[in-house]
């Protein structure tokens, strides 16, 4: 990758942060927090497809994750490092899918789905796997007890996690298709990709 590729990836990485911050609105209520990965993956899907069409080189996905990775550090040392390592793992798998073919839409969408799986798997793992400590922590921080108990009940329903993962994949696909439509309707006509 050359300097211009890093610059393009950096800009898209910042845009992905914007998408994540918009999706974070769902975290403002215990009843919609499970939708965070679903909403985030829609925005990421659009960006991912456009980015890979623009920078069709190895390493683009890894660089795309840099700004979000820096953001994870603000969630704390341990949580941040776990977040970064998990994102790195999913980014590597995504890179492997794209490895020598960055042109095929099937590969791009598959790579995108693997990338956003981070949000619904590693991103939700603490809630679903360590429900009691996660909810107790929320209670200690001052979240309303009724809300915490309702969250606890939700996290106990493990099939709900599967539903979140599937919804995330669906919205990633929808976002990717949107991105694809935007490329053909706008970006290709203007000569930008």
């Amino acid at each position: 990758m050359k300097a211009k590729d890093f610059i393009t990836c950096a800009i898209f990485s910042v845009l992905s942060m914007v998408g994540m911050l918009l999706a974070a609105i769902t975290n403002m209520s215990g009843y919609t927090a499970l939708l965070y990965p679903v909403v985030a993956s829609f925005f990421i899907g659009i960006l991912f497809v456009v980015l890979i069409n623009k920078v069709s080189k190895k390493g683009a996905v890894l660089v795309f994750g840099i700004v979000p990775a820096l953001y994870f550090l603000t969630t704390g040392l341990i949580e941040g490092l776990i977040g970064i390592v998990s994102l790195l793992v999913f980014s590597v798998f995504s890179e492997l899918i794209l490895w020598n073919n960055h042109e095929s839409m099937k590969r791009i969408v598959s790579a995108c789905c693997v990338y956003t799986l981070y949000y619904s798997t590693a991103g939700m793992a603490e809630g679903f796997l360590f429900t009691d400590s996660y909810c107790d922590n929320a209670l200690k921080h001052g979240i309303n007890a009724k809300v915490v108990e309702d969250m606890r009940s939700m996290y106990y329903i493990k099939p709900l996690w599967v539903a979140v993962i599937l919804l995330t994949l669906l919205l990633t696909f929808v976002g990717a298709m949107w991105g694809r439509k935007m490329i053909s309707k706008h970006l290709k006509k203007v000569g930008l990709v």
Binding site: I11, F12, M182, L187, V190, L192, V193
Partner: peptide, 26 residues
């Protein structure tokens, strides 16, 4: 919202890259 944002972002990336290259970033 998204269309002008994307077009503007990509153009910014292109112009910034070109300017940075003329300043020896590579």
């Amino acid at each position: 919202y998204i269309v002008p944002l994307f077009i503007s972002s990509i153009k910014t990336a292109d112009e910034l890259s070109a300017a940075a290259m003329t300043r020896g970033i590579e």
